[in-house]
Design a protein around this nucleic acid. Structure first.
Length: 552
RNA sequence: GCGCCCAUAGCUUAAUUGGAUAGAGCAUUUGACUACGAAUCAAAAGGCUAGAGGUUCAACUCCUCUUGGGCGCGCCA
């Protein structure tokens, strides 16, 4: 959290500086890590921003501010310099780094977390695959991103609920029920055709077989109920095997079927509300949503002329329901194929009287599976898709989750099965986990030596003064920065990048700085540094839902 | 046709959200084990960030257009 401490100090200085110059505006500047070839620890761009406002030479301002910083922040800043177009480079004192390492060691797995439930209630809705078949790898990516995002937000103090929205109402489900029924009848030797557009996977036949084995009269069988029951069970099993557990499974029936004392469903009430507000209107015997008012390209039907509601109507009621349950922020993870839906749901949120910003829709691109350099063909229609279970069974949960989180949700993901299985540094999961195993191993080795100092108070951290050691501690402290970036961008992929970079820096340290030597003071200090690395790697992997094995 | 998203090294991609000489990994080439895990490390080479304009002290990032790709455009879910 070094960066945050610096920012706090700088803000005070900048505020006063602006006031002295008669500038009343607030300036939002950045504290950033300079490029590789610059030796400084941090750099700020504030002088250039002020220069623009008051039309002065940024380098002169930079020098003035740099002087103030060195005077007022000497407790943290060792040295400043003006560089480039007006950057102020900051060199921080080593003691600050050591203090950071100490708090990592003391706080352990709590390091970088804010007080629980200090930031309000958030609901993250993800996967939400229709219960009409097993989860495929696309759902897997959504599951990994969603679950990891929840872990990140929790660490930042949000009170987060993981929710799966179950579309157990509507056409798809009717077709599912019919599909099972036809298979059932076929197994009973009835001559009946199976329509092409029905669900033709083997799992449908298996459900039918189960029903036959239960020997019930066909009139007693609720095909819809039975189908959902079986499919949902496998979905839950697959998610559990993938280390994803939902806090809540929200059934569409709750808003579409359940009626209050006046005989009204939540969908009914929502529509009445929108009509009253003038955001819904009747035309051609149907009820329309005036979504163009809020940026959609056309108005949408809520209730068909035959009286049945559309999927959209349920979905609006569902979002309303989420707000009514007290969530301040709604996060939805959708596959990119749903992007057409963003405008209308955003419009609805505003019609319901909530701010556009309270709904955050994250779209993620598709996953393609690569084996030996070749893309595997996929088609949902023919039931020829790669399931999540297949991939997890083949490469393991850790590799699977890490790979799904490797790229920004906005980029398409290539999942290389052979690479994911590799046990070498070429495989990024393995590379990161290997660091943890190595740390554990060295610490174990260190424990054998009786003379090692373990009490933090007696460690001479000043001995950690090489470039490699400084770099390593700085990277450790960037753990919190990574949390903040992930929050801002609503994406966990920064952590895979971070962990890979941290591992890189660790290995460089490992090559240059021998840990176990005859010098007991250095040995003890470096062992503590390694312990810090271990803590951060474990914390980071935990946010991704990936394990940190002690040996490999 | 309309709309949304994407385009970065041969391949897969990152870039702290507008900052300094655009970082990694794979593949290629070269080097390093008589000490803590060589399952590793060090180094070389590889880029007009698809193209053209614009805004800015500063653009991969923002705006406009063009080209190429993905997806969506139902009183389906």
């Amino acid at each position: 959290m070094i960066k945050q401490n610096i920012t706090t100090g700088l803000n005070i200085i900048v505020k006063k500086y602006l006031k002295d110059r008669g500038v009343n505006e607030k300036i939002k500047f950045n504290v950033e890590v300079p490029p590789k070839d610059v030796a400084a620890d941090f750099a700020i761009n504030v002088a250039m921003l002020i220069a623009k406002k008051i039309k002065m030479n940024p380098k002169i301002l930079a020098q003035e501010i740099a002087n103030i910083i060195i005077m007022r922040m000497s407790y943290i800043i060792e040295k400043t310099e003006v560089a480039g177009a007006g950057f102020i480079n900051l060199y921080i004192k080593n003691e600050i780094l050591y203090r950071e390492l100490i708090s990592i060691l003391c706080e352990g797995d709590k390091y970088g977390s804010l007080a629980e439930n200090s930031k309000g209630r958030v609901i993250v809705e993800f996967v939400s695959a229709n219960p009409t078949g097993p989860l495929h790898i696309g759902h897997g990516r959504g599951a990994a991103i969603g679950d990891s995002l929840v872990r990140i937000l929790k660490r930042l103090g949000y009170n987060v609920t993981r929710e799966y929205y179950l579309n157990d109402v509507g056409n798809q489900i009717s077709i599912l029920a019919r599909s099972v029924e036809i298979r059932y009848r076929q197994l009973k030797k009835e001559k009946i055709d199976f329509p092409q557009e029905y669900y033709c996977g083997d799992y449908i036949i298996n459900i039918a077989k189960r029903l036959i084995s239960e020997n019930k009269n066909i009139n007693e069988i609720d095909f819809k109920y039975e189908a959902i029951k079986d499919i949902l069970r496998t979905i839950k099993e697959d998610l559990k095997a993938f280390a994803v557990e939902f806090d809540n499974w929200f059934s569409e029936e709750v808003i579409a079927f359940y009626r209050d004392s006046n005989g009204k469903t939540e969908v009914d009430k929502m529509c009445e509300y929108l009509i009253l507000k003038g955001d819904a209107y009747l035309k051609d015997d149907a009820l329309w949503l005036a979504s163009t008012k809020f940026g959609d390209d056309k108005d949408r039907v809520l209730k068909r002329s035959d009286g049945r509601y559309t999927y959209l109507a349920s979905d609006i009621a569902y979002h309303k329901n989420k707000f009514e349950r007290g969530f301040k922020k709604l996060i939805n993870l959708w596959g990119t194929d749903h992007h057409g839906y963003v405008a209308r749901i955003t419009a609805c949120v505003q019609m319901l009287g909530f701010k556009k910003e309270s709904l955050n829709i994250i779209l993620y691109q598709l996953v393609s599976i690569v084996r030996n350099g070749k893309h595997l063909a996929m088609s949902t229609r023919a039931g020829k898709f790669v399931t999540l279970k297949e991939v997890v069974d083949e490469v393991g949960v850790d590799a699977c989750r890490f790979f799904f989180l490797l790229r920004s949700p906005a980029s398409q993901l290539e999942f290389d099965l052979e690479l994911a299985k590799k046990r070498s540094s070429k495989n990024p999961v393995f590379y990161v986990q290997y660091v943890n195993a190595r740390c554990v191993s060295i610490i174990k080795e260190g424990k054998i030596r009786k003379d090692v100092i373990t009490n933090i108070g007696n460690i001479n951290f000043n001995l950690l003064n090489t470039k490699e050691e400084r770099d390593l501690i700085k990277k450790l402290s960037a753990f919190y920065d990574t949390l903040l970036v992930s929050e801002k961008t609503m994406s966990p992929h920064h952590f895979t990048t971070y962990l890979i970079e941290l591992s890189d820096i660790y290995h460089r340290f490992y090559e240059k700085c021998r840990v176990l030597t005859d010098d007991i003071a250095i040995t003890s200090a470096r062992l503590k540094l390694i312990e810090g690395v271990m803590i951060i790697i474990q914390n980071g992997l935990n946010l991704l839902g990936v394990s940190a094995p002690k040996q490999m």
